[in-house]
Design a protein around this nucleic acid. Structure first.
Lengths: 213, 213
DNA sequence: AGGCTTATTATACGCGTGAATAATTCGCGC
DNA sequence: GCGCGAATTATTCACGCGTATAATAAGCCT
C-alpha cells in the first residue's frame, strides 16, 4: 500500500495553515462542521497531525479565536495611524471599523461563533476580555488625544462615558452593517457612523464627517 | 421489560417544552452540545419524540431562534407601552433594551449561536431579517411619535438615519453591557444609554435622562 | 367499560466524531 | 550519502450523532 507523499513544514506555517483551515470550516459549516477531519482535509494534511501541534481541538479553536480578534483590531489601528492629526486618526479608526475588511459576513460568523462559547468555556471568556479591554483602551487613547488637540477639557469620567458610548455605537454599526449589508449603500454606513459620533461627542455637524480624507 | 410510564401532553405545551429544553442545552453546552438526546433528556422525554413534533432537528432549532428573538423584542415593547407620553415610551424602550431581562448572558449566548448560523443556513437569515426589520420599525415609530410630540420637524431620511444610529447604539450597549456585565454598575448602562441617545438626537442634556420614571 | 387513535417509548442502523497509537517517510547534521 | 530524530500518515477505538421503524400505553369517545 502506498503512503501519501508529504512536505515537512516549519512549525509556524503549519500552525498558521491549521488555524486558517479551522476558520474556513467554521465560516462555511458552522462550529458543528469544524471537525478534526474537515479541518485537516482543508489544510491538506491528515487528522492526526492536529494533535501534533495542539493539545486538542479546543486549544486550536482558542488559537483561531485569537487570530480573528487580532485581525479586526489590527486592521482598525493600522488605518488610524495613517492619520496626521488626532482628529483624522479618530475619524479613520471609526470608519475602518464599519468598512471592509472589518465588516465582512465571514468575520461576523466567526466572531459570533466564538462569542456564543464565552459563557461555556472560561478560556474563551479570557480571550474576549483581553481584546475588549484593548479595544476600549485604543478608543480612549484616540479620544483623549482628540480632546487635547481641540483644547477641550473633558473629565476622566466623562471620557470613559464617551468611550463606552462610542464603543457601543461602533460595535452596533459594525453588526448592523454586516448583517444587513445589502440594506446599506456603499458609504452610507461610514457617513452615518461619523455623523453619530459627532453627535455623541456634541461636536458641530460636519466637524468629523465633512473632513477631507 | 417495563416500559416507562408517561403523560400525554397537548401539542402546544410539548412543543414549548422541547423548545425550552433546546435553549437550555444551547446555553449550557453550546450548539455542539444541543443534541437530540440531550434535549430530549432535559425535556423529560425520549429522543424519538422530537421527530413527532418537528420534521427534524433543524426545524426545532429555527423555532427556538424565533422564540429567543420574540422574547427580546416583546420585553422591550411591553416596557415601552407603559409610558404615558411619547418621550416616556421612547425612554422606556431604550432602558428596557439595556436592562435585565434583556441583558442576560444566557440570552446573549443563544443570540450569538444563532447569528453565527445566519450565513450558513438561509432559513436563519430569514428569521433574522424579519426580526431586525420589526425592531427597526418599532424604533422608528417611537421616534416619529416623539418628534411629533416635541413639535420638531424631522425629514423622513433624517428619521431613518436616526433610527439606524439608535439601533446600533442600543445593540452595541446591549452587547457591551451583557458581555462585560461585571464592569458596569447597576444603572450605569441605562444612564449612559439615555445620555448617548440624547446626544444622538441632538437633545438638551437631561431631556431624557433626568426624567422621572 | 372497552375499543381506537395516536402520542410516546424503545431499539436498531449507519455514519462521523475526537483521541490514541503504530508505522512510515522526510530532511537535517555529520 | 547516510543515519537518526521528528514530522506526518495510517489505522484503530469507543462512543455519540440524527434518523427510521416497530412496539406499546394513554386517554378520549361512545
Amino acid at each position: 500500500m502506498n503512503r501519501r507523499t508529504y512536505h515537512r513544514a516549519s512549525e509556524a506555517e503549519r500552525r498558521e495553515d491549521l488555524i486558517a483551515a479551522t476558520l474556513d470550516c467554521i465560516a462555511e459549516f458552522g462550529i458543528q462542521g469544524a471537525t478534526v477531519r474537515q479541518i485537516a482535509m482543508r489544510a491538506g494534511v491528515t487528522g492526526g497531525l492536529i494533535r501534533h501541534y495542539f493539545a486538542g481541538k479546543d486549544q486550536m479553536l482558542q488559537a483561531a479565536y485569537r487570530k480573528v480578534m487580532a485581525g479586526m483590531t489590527e486592521a482598525a489601528i493600522a488605518a488610524a495611524i495613517e492619520g496626521e492629526t488626532a482628529r483624522s486618526r479618530l475619524r479613520r479608526f471609526i470608519v475602518a471599523n464599519v468598512t471592509p475588511p472589518v465588516t465582512d459576513p465571514r468575520t461576523l460568523s466567526l466572531w459570533a461563533a466564538f462569542i456564543s462559547h464565552i459563557q461555556i468555556d472560561p478560556s474563551f471568556a479570557a480571550i474576549h476580555r483581553e481584546n475588549y479591554l484593548s479595544f476600549l483602551e485604543a478608543l480612549e487613547t484616540l479620544l483623549t488625544a482628540f480632546f487635547t488637540e481641540e483644547r477641550r477639557v473633558v473629565s476622566r469620567a466623562q471620557c470613559r462615558t464617551y468611550a463606552i458610548g462610542l464603543n457601543a455605537l461602533v460595535d452596533g454599526l459594525w453588526l448592523e452593517g454586516t448583517l444587513a449589508a445589502d440594506t446599506f449603500a456603499e458609504h452610507e454606513l461610514a457617513e452615518n457612523a461619523l455623523i453619530s459620533v459627532e453627535a455623541l461627542l456634541r461636536l458641530q455637524p460636519g466637524e468629523l464627517s465633512a473632513e477631507q480624507r
